[in-house]
């Protein structure tokens, strides 16, 4: 498949904001990227502006979906115990990992490593959501009644847009 007509798949993709004096970081040090080791791109736009050659077409022809096997990508650590903010941060990270894997799987539905990565992080996410609901109140409607109280707690919680000031 060397005759790849898609101009966007064979370009050198510059991922950095090189001339801006901005240290760009995605903020999720252990985040998802299935294709990281294959494409040297964690999706955080880099902080050195490194370029990469995306030879997806050739690799696909060789049966390589680009997820680079087991050793190429980071996994999120185990659920923390302790305070609400660190559990929420854990939920943010593990959910991001699962969601990013889902986007990847949308266009690579038969990538086995990707499926496994998604399952692992989605399981962690579901456990964490349940735990959070038990300790601090529900984040989703399906956990809205874990405590079986006499009040609809769902409307009685801080909204995420209020920031840390509530």
């Amino acid at each position: 498949m060397s005759n790849n007509r898609n101009p966007y798949m064979n370009q050198n993709m510059s991922t950095g904001a090189r001339n801006m004096n901005v240290r760009v970081s995605c903020g999720y040090p252990n985040s998802a990227p299935i294709q990281r080791s294959a494409q040297n791109d964690c999706g955080c736009a880099g902080n050195t502006g490194t370029t990469q050659q995306n030879n997806y077409a050739q690799r696909l022809a060789q049966g390589d979906c680009g997820c680079a096997g087991n050793s190429g990508y980071a996994r999120v650590a185990d659920m923390p115990t302790g305070d609400r903010m660190s559990l929420l941060a854990y939920i943010d990270q593990v959910s991001f990992a699962a969601y990013e894997a889902a986007l990847y799987l949308d266009t690579h539905p038969d990538c086995q490593n990707g499926l496994q990565y998604f399952r692992e992080h989605n399981e962690k996410r579901n456990l964490a959501l349940k735990e959070y609901a038990k300790l601090y109140g529900p984040l989703t409607l399906e956990h809205a009644d874990e405590s079986c109280e006499a009040y609809w707690q769902w409307v009685n919680q801080p909204w995420p847009w209020e920031g840390g000031n509530c």
């Binding site: 929420l88 943010d92 529900p138 989703t140 920031g163």
Partner: peptide
């Protein structure tokens, strides 16, 4: 659509 009560990335501007 349904939603989760968290932003995709935390925002706390003081």
């Amino acid at each position: 659509w349904y939603y989760e009560k968290r932003l995709e990335y935390p925002i706390n501007i003081t």
